[in-house]
């Protein structure tokens, strides 16, 4: 059994495609309510970690736990139950391009045969959360890249998953849209107590995710604050991947003191 305190846990997970080793004995854990930022160059297996945790591919060796449950050898049907707890935000959004924005967001509930009158308020609440209520009847190809990812986030949030995976949600976006997406992640982390893995290699994302937090004031307004002398974020941790190995695991303060040349490249 995995520890019940860990939302996600990898134990000595290895994966290779033919001769090419993607992950070599990778171990890490994400505690409940924690955000884990996974960094590394392209092709270092960052996205593979998310696909493994979702059960889309199976590891060659090692064990994977979701909410303390060993999912390593789950069948596709057993995985369907696990996946209900998880929201996944894909790199380019991965919206169903034959469905409208509304139908995309409603997809999970329709698959669960939820009555239509219960679906609509949920879909509208999710679209309001990502600030895209106006786009409800649009098709994905009418949206900009940033809007598509926000719809992707809205779709992932349906069903109130307690675990969310972000696969480079800000890649290729302008700084303002990227910040909007990071703020959505902050809201989920600080207000909804969601555990997450956030795959990225952008320093700007890290600045936001590791130094800011969001609180709700007495009137219900959201306030974004920077961590300062009196508060230090402990619910955001880093993992750095290189050549299929974890070369660093720890907090923001620790990673910035690292002398490893590979890590230094990311922070300069």
């Amino acid at each position: 059994m995995g520890s019940a305190l860990n939302a996600i846990e990898f134990r000595d997970v290895s994966l290779a495609f033919g001769e090419r080793v993607i992950l070599d004995r990778v171990s890490f854990a994400v505690r409940q309510g924690e955000s884990k930022i996974v960094m590394g160059g392209s092709g270092t297996g960052k996205s593979t970690i998310l696909r493994l945790a979702l059960g889309l591919i199976k590891p060659d060796a090692g064990r994977i736990f979701i909410d303390g449950e060993d999912i390593t050898h789950h069948t596709e049907e057993q995985m369907m139950e696990i996946r209900r707890k998880i929201g996944m935000v894909f790199q380019e959004g991965a919206l169903f391009d034959s469905l409208t924005v509304y139908d995309n967001v409603a997809y999970r509930l329709r698959e669960q045969h939820v009555p239509e009158e219960q679906i609509e308020p949920v879909v509208m609440r999710m679209l309001r959360f990502v600030d895209l209520e106006d786009a409800v009847v649009k098709m994905p190809n009418e949206l900009s890249g940033g809007m598509r990812r926000r719809v992707g986030i809205a779709r992932a949030l349906v069903g109130n998953p307690k675990i969310i995976f972000y696969d480079e949600p800000t890649a290729g976006l302008d700084p303002i849209t990227a910040r909007t997406i990071c703020e959505l992640a902050l809201k989920l982390r600080d207000l909804e107590d969601v555990s997450s893995i956030f795959v990225t290699h952008r320093l700007q994302d890290i600045e936001v995710l590791a130094h800011e937090y969001v609180i709700r004031d007495d009137k219900g307004n959201l306030i974004f604050e920077e961590e300062g002398e009196r508060l230090c974020l402990i619910n955001t941790k880093f993992v750095m991947l290189k050549d299929g190995h974890i070369i660093f695991s720890g907090t923001d303060e620790e990673i910035r003191q690292s002398a490893d040349p590979y890590i230094l490249k990311f922070f300069t």
């Binding site: 979702l54 894909f90 991965a94 919206l95 997809y107 999970r108 779709r155």
Partner: peptide, 8 residues
Amino acid sequence: DAMRALGT
């Protein structure tokens, strides 16, 4: 993949 992630 998105389809599988959403339980289909």
